[in-house]
Design a protein around this nucleic acid. Structure first.
Lengths: 324, 324
DNA sequence: GAGGGGTCCGACAACGTTGTCAACCGGTTA
DNA sequence: TAACCGGTTGACAACGTTGTCGGACCCCTC
């Protein structure tokens, strides 16, 4: 910038004015400055700008895994909103490790992001308190923060979604419905279990429930165990997208009824099509990002807790009737 | 930091030393400083640090779309490598728009990223020249840069992959093989067309080729047109992952042989399983990122042009024999 | 011709960090 | 005793930008 200034024969401040489109610069001068900028290939040093202005025009996003379609969809939607607001997105994958989540958040904070969107991996978010007190808005998405933190949250309606799935299967004559889902330490998994259990009422049987990280071997073994029971399940409710896929593989053509939480590409092309409770990751991302920007614009109302509806999409696998 | 210094009763520089783990600070002093840091919830301002040091420990990644599994896989792998090197990843989706690609690159450069990985959307990358001359290493992935730019490149072996696909179909008795792919302005699409054409030799018939953005309606119409020919195709080669899925939908159960470029989840669970030419997006990301860091460590050898092999995975759809 | 108001421009400080260099202190050596 | 040394510590400038303020100049009015 100094070079540009001397090349154009003006003061530093004038170049700054031109670069930022501030008024009060003679058109001819501005043109000269622009020419010098172009000639020297100058581009503003954002680090210096951020330091001086105290705003970074950067938003941080912590997700579980970009390679998971749910989070990449969410991520893309957040990016869209962030770009529309003239900001840049920093994002990172926690890989479901609380330590990694915290590291990411702290790295982002050290870079003085203007706001954060977090899909938490851990339970304890007290480390965020100082940042919140410093005025950085934070929105939790997909999962709420650990106890004692009162911040904006955007969730899917997991409980009623699981209820819909179970009632759908009940409606097709099933009374032995298995639930295969992620570790109940994960909020969404626990919520879906709760919805499942509530909808089943007296039909609930813990022998039909298996919750742990989705590996093909584990799911295959658990399913085999359940199918060997005196009253084996005739239907399966899968706790998330990855689980649904794993269950499909483990079933290997066995015709059990199946409803999965989360929609996924090709669910309609399988034989039979896979009935799912669909959430909309883009919507969740958009809502979270827009809420964040509302806070950045100065909205200081009480923290919001949004629950996005989900909907059941029948495609065949969930409509397989129970054998009498 | 100033506050920490006065709280600990030391000079600014001493705090800096402690924060950066520099030697030459008395353990007791360091402890006092650390206590003050903890008490005040201090965290280093990275903007200031970047400004002062001239290094940002940041890598920029421009991809086509995070929500596309190919790129999200690549993205995740790049992130992994970047983190291992103690850096942070800035990434953005160009959405196949050259203007957006350029904006992203320029935004990243304004933030003084230490290096760039680009999946280009456009043809003209002369705007990168000044940055390259300034010494910022750039690696192109998945697609090469436009003419006249000699930089490191990591590609998949598209031509021979397409050849493999076509020869596989020829081997199952097909002589009328359609190619449905993306706009040939996209490098990978053009390369795959070239491989397809070379493998077909005299059997090539331009009436069996359709290249444009993959919309279900367009693909359906093109397929219908081809099937209405006197000698309709008995097999289809789909030019990329999205195309494969679209073709599957458009075929709507019609039993044509099909080989797709790019693997995708559930390809094995469809009926029949979908035969694909698989690339490895994680591998590509890892290779590109590692190449970039080698440059950052000072390797100034001539630019490298890596071509990653692809492999055909037979799953059923590509082994449907031609009707005589 | 003096005063007032507008437009355009520049000097200077400050943002929070780190690299450079010099100062200090206790003990050892010549 | 003076010179010297290694281990600690601090003062200061600089990184590139922007906010504040004031000065120079022109045109208009009385």
């Amino acid at each position: 910038m100094k070079d540009v200034a001397s090349a154009a024969g003006v003061a530093l401040k004038t170049v700054s004015r031109v670069v930022n489109g501030e008024p009060g610069v003679h058109p001819a001068t501005a043109e000269r400055v622009r020419a010098a900028i172009h000639r020297l290939g100058y581009s503003r040093n954002e680090s210096a700008r951020m330091l001086r202005r105290g705003r970074t025009a950067t938003i941080g996003l912590v997700i579980e895994d970009v390679a998971d379609p749910f989070y990449s969809g969410l991520s893309r939607a957040v990016e869209e909103v962030v770009i529309d607001h003239g900001c840049l997105l920093l994002s990172g994958s926690s890989g479901e490790q609380p330590g990694r989540e915290r590291e990411l958040v702290e790295t982002f904070c050290a870079r003085r992001v203007d706001g954060l969107i977090v899909v938490p991996a851990g339970e304890d978010h007290t480390y965020l308190r100082s940042e919140l007190e410093a005025g950085t808005p934070v929105v939790f998405a997909d999962r709420p923060p650990g106890a004692g933190l009162d911040v904006d949250t955007v969730l899917a309606d997991n409980v009623s979604g699981a209820g819909q799935a179970v009632r759908h299967l009940l409606g097709h004559g099933h009374s032995r419905i298995a639930f295969l889902g992620d570790d109940p330490a994960i909020f969404t998994a626990a919520q879906r279990l709760q919805g499942y259990r509530a909808a089943l009422g007296g039909l609930y049987d813990e022998r039909l429930v298996s919750m742990r990280p989705p590996s093909l071997e584990a799911v295959r073994a658990d399913l085999a165990g359940m199918l060997a029971l005196d009253e084996p399940p005739t239907a399966v409710f899968a706790g998330n997208g990855r689980y649904t896929v794993t269950v499909l593989r483990a079933l290997a053509g066995r015709r059990l009824a199946l409803v999965g939480f989360d929609d996924f590409e090709l669910a309609d092309l399988l034989q039979p099509g896979v009935t799912v409770v669909a959430q909309d990751p883009s919507w969740m991302g958009r809502v979270a990002a827009e809420l964040l920007f509302r806070r950045l614009r100065g909205d200081v109302g009480p923290s919001e807790h949004i629950e996005l509806p989900v909907r059941l999409i029948p495609r065949g696998s969930g409509e397989i009737a129970a054998h009498p």
